[in-house]
Amino acid sequence: MSRKKHDGDTPTPRERFADAVGVSKEILLDTVLISCIGSREVTLENYKSILAYSDTAIRIQAKPRAVEIAGKRLELRCITKEMLYITGRIDRIGFLD
């Protein structure tokens, strides 16, 4: 019996389980956690790699989908294995297909 592919519109069984037991979803699901402080700073935790980097757009490989941060004068202020800290004028944060 083949596994049914999830459409992405409804919560997965894992998400439902995380909701049920009250565990942080980014840990249980191994997904990216994006935190913004206003429109000047953004922090990405639990990412995979950097796909593209320029001062107007940064693309980051993450689970479940790649993230694109667009803006002006973007800078990677801190880069570690677990966390990316980006500053600049952030106009848009989106997920890529």
Partner: peptide, 16 residues
């Protein structure tokens, strides 16, 4: 940058 990140090298203030 990705390789640096994977090897956990201490780099910061990256500007293009």
């Amino acid at each position: 940058l990705t390789v640096c990140m994977k090897r956990n090298l201490d780099i910061r203030d990256i500007r293009q």
